[in-house]
Amino acid sequence: MHHAEHVMGTVVSIDLADNLPPQELRAMVDDVCGWLHEVDRRFSTYREDSEVSKLRRREIDPADCSRDMRHVLEACADLWRETDGYFDAYAAGPLDPSGYVKGWSVEIASARLVQAGSVNHCVNAGGDIRARGRSATGAPWRVGIRHPWEADKLSWVLAVSDQAVATSGVYERGDHVFNPRTGGPARGLRSVTVVGPDLALADAYATAALAMGEAGIAWLSKLAADGYDSALVTDDGRAFSSAGLPASV
Rank of each mutant, 00 (worst) to 15 (best):
61 D>A: 13
118 S>E: 09
51 E>N: 02
138 G>W: 08
25 L>M: 08
67 R>S: 15
103 G>K: 07
99 G>T: 01
105 S>Q: 02
95 L>E: 11
121 H>F: 14
130 R>L: 06
104 W>Q: 08
28 M>L: 11
78 D>W: 13
110 S>F: 11
56 R>V: 12
122 C>T: 09
60 I>P: 00
90 Y>M: 15
140 P>M: 04
64 D>N: 04
33 C>S: 12
109 A>Y: 01
121 H>E: 06
121 H>C: 15
14 I>Y: 01
29 V>R: 02
115 Q>L: 12
133 G>R: 13
143 V>K: 05
70 R>N: 14
116 A>K: 15
127 G>A: 10
58 R>M: 08
103 G>C: 15
27 A>G: 12
77 A>E: 14
99 G>R: 15
133 G>S: 05
34 G>P: 03
127 G>V: 02
104 W>E: 12
100 Y>F: 15
118 S>A: 15
41 R>T: 13
121 H>K: 10
113 L>G: 06
8 M>F: 05
10 T>I: 06
54 K>R: 15
30 D>G: 09
102 K>I: 05
127 G>D: 01
40 D>P: 06
17 A>P: 04
41 R>Q: 14
89 A>I: 02
37 H>G: 06
36 L>Q: 03
13 S>P: 07
133 G>F: 07
124 N>T: 13
47 R>K: 15
33 C>F: 04
34 G>R: 05
22 P>H: 09
103 G>L: 09
55 L>Q: 01
127 G>M: 12
45 T>Q: 11
85 G>I: 04
130 R>A: 06
80 W>S: 06
134 R>Y: 14
8 M>E: 02
129 I>H: 09
36 L>W: 01
53 S>M: 02
127 G>I: 03
124 N>Y: 00
10 T>P: 02
136 A>P: 00
144 G>D: 08
95 L>H: 09
32 V>Q: 05
10 T>W: 00
63 A>I: 06
61 D>E: 04
22 P>E: 05
11 V>K: 02
29 V>E: 05
137 T>E: 15
143 V>N: 02
87 F>Q: 04
99 G>W: 02
85 G>H: 01
145 I>T: 07
69 M>I: 10
97 P>V: 08
96 D>V: 08
105 S>C: 04
88 D>T: 07
58 R>L: 06
58 R>F: 04
142 R>Q: 13
25 L>A: 12
130 R>C: 13
142 R>V: 11
15 D>I: 10
137 T>D: 09
145 I>R: 10
120 N>S: 05
30 D>P: 10
118 S>Y: 12
136 A>G: 05
35 W>R: 12
138 G>V: 03
89 A>E: 14
115 Q>W: 10
119 V>P: 11
134 R>E: 01
140 P>H: 00
25 L>C: 13
131 A>L: 07
142 R>C: 15
46 Y>G: 00
